[in-house]
Computed example of a mutant assay.
Amino acid sequence: MPTKKDIGKAYLNYYTHEDENIQKPKKRGGVVRRLKRAFSVARNKGYLALKYGAVNGASSLTKLAGLYAYLQPILKSTLDFDAMYLRIRSGAKLLEIGCGSGRQLEIFRKLGWQAEGLDLDPKAVEIASARGLTIHFGSLEEQHFLGRSFDAVVSSHVIEHVHDPVGLLRECGRILKLDGKLVIITPNTSSWGHMWFRSHWLALDPPRHLHLFNSISLRRAAEEAGLKVLRLTSTVRDADGLFRASRDIQRTKRHVWGIRHSLGLRRWSRALQWAEWLLLQVGLDRGEELMMICGPNDENIRHCSR
């Protein structure tokens, strides 16, 4: 395992160094393409308004379009991730740990959160700050945030990168308000993809991933940190991309981010994603990601107040 002193060398060319906010030329297309794009935007906004209370001024017609997303479970998994599975509280304080270049943080802000970000990578912090976002540089412990100061703390694919995951969860619990929520997303070692690709599974990602979890070990880490697990499940979000990347590693020993795969391979990976979704419907914990929602432990709160 890399030491804390050396781990930064593994991130010199990490994907969070890309500024995703750079405007790319848009395909103008015809009337049909524009109508499809307009419907997709309305559908997504409507779903987020219906399920999570997004304060984006969604009209009744937009919400009607949002009902269509409930019929698309793969799309639904992506939209749930955009909201980070949290009911939106307009103006409430949210901290994203490991915000990278700030793409997700901008989504939180548009949804209505008073969102701040935190990252250890100076290049990523530079890119995110250039977007006008509130960004803190360094580890969570180094910020010395006041206790009970955030309504929500979220962290996507970060806990597997840290040397002390229980310590990170404990500090998250300290800064969380008594009615606040902590959301953790991380790869699932019990996933179908890991069983299928074994040592070629993309989410192993050595040497950056220091600790990997299944639902049992992630729950145990949260409980050791003094948190109460409110929900713990696995999802198929972006599983098709992970399947394609893992196949690249299996065949060529490497994966190039952003590569355009063939139509046949994209259809194959999407079929696997649907098969994995079916496994979840029969109660098998085989999704590629774990999603855990925690809150402060009531017993710990009562003990501290005595």
Rank of each mutant, 00 (worst) to 15 (best):
K76F: 02
D80W: 04
N56S: 07
G57V: 03
A49K: 02
Y68R: 13
A42G: 05
T78C: 15
L50E: 12
A49M: 02
K45D: 01
G53I: 06
A58Q: 13
A58N: 10
G53S: 10
A54S: 13
R43M: 13
K76M: 12
T78P: 04
Q72D: 14
L61D: 01
K63E: 06
L50C: 11
T78W: 12
A58M: 09
L64H: 05
Y47Q: 05
A65W: 05
A49C: 03
L79V: 07
S60R: 10
Q72E: 15
N44Q: 14
A49Y: 00
F81P: 05
T62R: 13
L48K: 06
L71K: 08
Q72Y: 03
Q72P: 03
R43W: 01
T62F: 03
I74S: 11
L64E: 03
N44C: 12
I74Q: 12
Q72T: 08
D82I: 08
D80S: 09
L75F: 06
Y52C: 07
P73N: 03
F81H: 15
L64T: 10
Y68C: 14
I74A: 10
D82Q: 15
Y68Q: 12
R43P: 01
S60N: 08
N56I: 13
T62N: 10
G66M: 04
A69M: 01
D80Q: 08
L50T: 08
A54P: 11
G66H: 02
P73M: 03
T78N: 15
L75A: 12
P73L: 02
K51R: 11
G57E: 09
V55D: 14
L48G: 05
Y47W: 06
S59F: 00
Y68F: 15
S59P: 00
A49T: 03
L75Q: 13
G57K: 04
R43Q: 13
S59Y: 00
S59D: 01
L50I: 12
L79G: 08
A54I: 04
Y70H: 09
A54V: 05
G66W: 02
A49D: 05
L71C: 10
D82R: 14
D82F: 09
K45C: 05
V55E: 13
S60M: 11
Y68I: 15
Y70P: 01
N56E: 15
A42T: 02
G53C: 09
A54Y: 08
D82H: 14
D82A: 13
A58I: 01
L67I: 04
K51Q: 10
L61N: 01
D80V: 03
G57F: 06
S77L: 03
L64M: 12
P73T: 01
P73G: 00
V55S: 14
A54E: 10
D82V: 08
L64I: 10
K51H: 06
L64P: 03
L48P: 07
T62H: 06
A58L: 09
L61A: 12
A65P: 00
L64W: 11
I74E: 13
K51D: 03
D82K: 14
A42Q: 07
G57C: 06
G46N: 12
N44K: 13
Y47L: 09
Y47M: 07
Y52A: 10
L67A: 04
D80A: 09
L50A: 10
A58F: 06
L64G: 07
K63C: 04
N44L: 04
L71H: 01
I74T: 12
G46M: 11
L50K: 13
F81Y: 14
Y68W: 14
L71V: 02
F81I: 08
G46P: 13
S59A: 00
Y68E: 12
S77N: 11
Y52N: 07
G66V: 02
